[in-house]
Structures are given as C-alpha cells and as structure tokens.
Design a binder for these strands. Sequence first.
RNA 1: GUGGCUGUAGCUCAGUUGGUUAGAGCAUUGGUUUGUGGAGCCAAGGGCCGGGGGUUCGAGUCCCCUCAGCCACCCCA
Length: 448
Amino acid sequence: LWSAPILHCGPVFPGGFYVTLVSDPFDTERVGGRGVKMVKLSMSKLVRGFRDIFAPESDAFAELEAAARRIFKIYGATELRIPTVELKELFIKSTGDTTDIVQKEMYAFEDGGGRTLALRPEGTPGVVRAYLENNFAQNNPVQKFFYIGTMFRAERPQAGRYREFEQIGFEYIGNSSPYADAEAILVLKDIVTEFGVKNYSVKLNSIGCPKCRPAYKDALVNYLSSRKGDMCEKCCERLERNPLRVLDCKIDGAKFKDEAPKMVLCAECEEHFAEVKKTLDGRIEYTVDTNLVRGLDYYSRTVFEFQAGDMAQNAIAGGGRYDGLLESMGGPSMPAVGYAMGVDRTILARAKEQEVKKQEGYFVVSLDKTCNAKAFEIMQTLRAKGVKTDGGLFDKNLKTQMKTADRWGAAFAVILGGNELAKGTVMLKNLQTFTQEEISVKDLYEKN
RNA sequence: GUGGCUGUAGCUCAGUUGGUUAGAGCAUUGGUUUGUGGAGCCAAGGGCCGGGGGUUCGAGUCCCCUCAGCCACCCCA
C-alpha cells in the first residue's frame, strides 16, 4: 500500500477537502492516521500548451474547415480520417529519426498491451500507412486525400505554437507529374483565398532527388567542415544533422552563402522544377527561395511554404514532394506530393487583417409580460424561416435587452410592447443606423 | 529544450523606502418613478495580489522554489 501512488478516495467534504492516501507514510502533513491526508481540492488546471477555444475563434475554425472541404471537393480530393495514435516507430521511420519532431517533441507512451505508441505529430505518416495497409497501390493507386485533425508536439508554447494544434493536410499519391505539384499548391491557395487571408507570400524551391542531392550535400559538408572555426556552436550540430540549415543560420549563415557550393539539379529534376514553375506562372505569385529547406526527412524535389503574419511563426502552410517515402516505408515505389496547413496560424493571420465584427439577424425584445408569448412566437417563426434570431431576455428591462442585442451582434432589434401588440405590429430598429420603423408582424415575416 | 520579460477584480492596469479594511477605468447586476443599445446619472456585487515556502512585529511589495503566459532562439504548420 505504501508504495502505491497517491490514490484519491472518498467523497469531497464541505469546504472542498477530500481524503487521499499518500505513498509516504511519514508525510508530516497527514491528519487521519498513517499515510492518510486531508487535501484541499484544487481546481483542475489546463495543461501547458493546450487550450480551450471559444467563439468567435471556434467559429473561425469551423469556417476554415468548411472552406477547405468546399475547395477539396472541387479538386476531387476525398476526406481520410486517420487515428490520433499510431505506433511510435511509424513516425521514426517516416518523419525521420534525425528530426526534432521525432527526437524530442513526440508524446510517446506505452499502452497496457506493451505497445509503444505516440500521439501523431503530423498527418502524412498516418495517411501513407493507411494507403499502404489498404493496398491502394495495387487496386487504385492514384489517390487525392485530405485530412483535418489535431497534432501534438511537445515544444515550448508561444503565440501561434501550441502543443495540440490543428492541421488541414493534402496528400496526392501516385502522380509524379509536375502538374500534381502545381495542383497541390493551387488547391492550398484556393483554400487560403476562400477563407479570406489576403496578405501572404509563397516560397518555392527544389531540393533535388536521391540522384543529385547527395552530391550537393557532400560538397556542402566538405566546404562547411573546412570553415568550422567560423561557425556558431549550433551550426556545428546542424552540420551533422541537416547541413542545409547552416546556410539559414541568422548568426553567420550569410558568411557562407556566396562561397558555398550551389545546388545543381540533375536534368530530370531541373526539367520537373521548370515545368512546375511554368504551370504556376500567372496562376499564383511566388518567389523562388533557394534556401528554403524542409525539416522533415522525406521531402524531395519541389518544396514550398506559405507565409503570413509578422510573428516568428509565420509559416501557415508547408509541404512538398516525397517520392521516396512510400518505398522507404516498405511499400512500392510510388510518387507523392502534399502539404499541411496550420489552422491556428491561418486564423491568426486573417484575424490580424480584419477586425470588423459583422452584425446579422434579429434580436427580439419584449417590454412587458403580456407581450412575452407573442415575442417568443416571433422568434420561433423567424428561426423556422432560417433567419438567425436571438432574444428571450424578457424579464430584463429595455435598456439591458437593447445592450444585449448590440453585444450579440444583431443587425435589427424587434421591439414588442403593449401598443404594438394591440395593433399587430412591431418596432423594427436598425442597430447600425439607429433608425426604426413600425411594421406589421406579417410584413416582418414576409421580408424573410 | 535554452535565454529574457511578465503574472493584482471578467478585461486593461495603479499600488510610494515593507505599515490600517488592496484601488481606478471599462465590463457585470440593479435602479434612474416605467418605451430605446454602441460615451447620461446613482448604487451594488466582484480579489487564495498565479501557487508553495522563507525573512519580519507586519509581505501585493524582499528572498528561494514552482506553475503559467509572452518574446527571442531552436524547430515547424
């Protein structure tokens, strides 16, 4: 018993106390005998990096998800719902065992059956696993999937960076054509536009394939090793794990940029990239950024990133081609391209652009008890017509009801008092222009 | 994960070299002698001063620990 962890037992007593067994029998605070302690019940707290999302932010989530579903449907993509938990090794194999995501940000745990599982840190591995496991490669190889769900990474939280965050992802499997790359980028653009983000920029690059990248990587590592003395500590680490990142270093990356060997794409990659750019020209504004590198191991050829906002976490979406991933996971050789969009960051980007609160619908006000029944009837009739209608605070005074109408964002107040009730009319007040008119209830219904 | 800043009412913030019962604005609730909100007036409610420990006659204030948020790094969406 004494080695057991703290056990809660028994009911909560008045004053918010409950009895608990503690593992240390010599606990000095014990009150009820050996190892038994009265503890003040404390309000459960939100876990760091996790959060509650209320309206209007929760509305924005629903809006973006709806916009994405509309656009994906137009592009012929189908929704794939993947599980939140996978075997940990899936992420090690696919995301890459050198990435920070796998090395230190995964929520991994052992379940009761001795399996080592992990909360998904990204969606692509699950989608690919589902594709392979259900043998799409044989039966119906070309697939356009999208998914919507929250991901988990144990990073230090910051604005636009949470430990549980939502991503909307797109994976186009089985098409090696540069048009597939363009399609992935354009479907993303259409969603961002549909949702209403205006100020964003698109960065594009090609990081080559297993034919041309290793040669470049070797040349770069060679060069950088010779310059190790000029590098910051962190870059020396980067040199081991992800040498391309050294050129991005804010401390002294610029020193090497000009001298460092340049990426030379092989003929096939060059042609592919040229075709992608040609297809995008005139359809989307973008800039080629030869320093754009993805942090995940599986990318090849085309990589891209959508950026918006002024904070450090300005990447609202990122992705690229991953032709080698399926084969490296034990599947057939199968090309693929995809991306993930950070829902929170996209919403944040739009919120900074527009702060106008929109007013819509009716708020029904009743001035005294004799009018309440009729007022409620008006509310339900408008609702039956599909019009956003609120109200019902009939016990409150007029001032409070009007204030509430304003606060809840109604466009019109429908005011019903004894005079109107007798005549079968209402006062219809436009809350934006301050004007009002008396109209019959019948007219009110017919307007909607 | 590393470094810096912050934490007092629902929100934004005052709070003096440590000293009575911790304040303001906005918000909320009620009233304004009975029908009009987004700047009228009057009144009221609302505080584990993030949490724990220490120093002291006395801590919102000083010290230590801890939790959380923000910023930068790191990384990524």
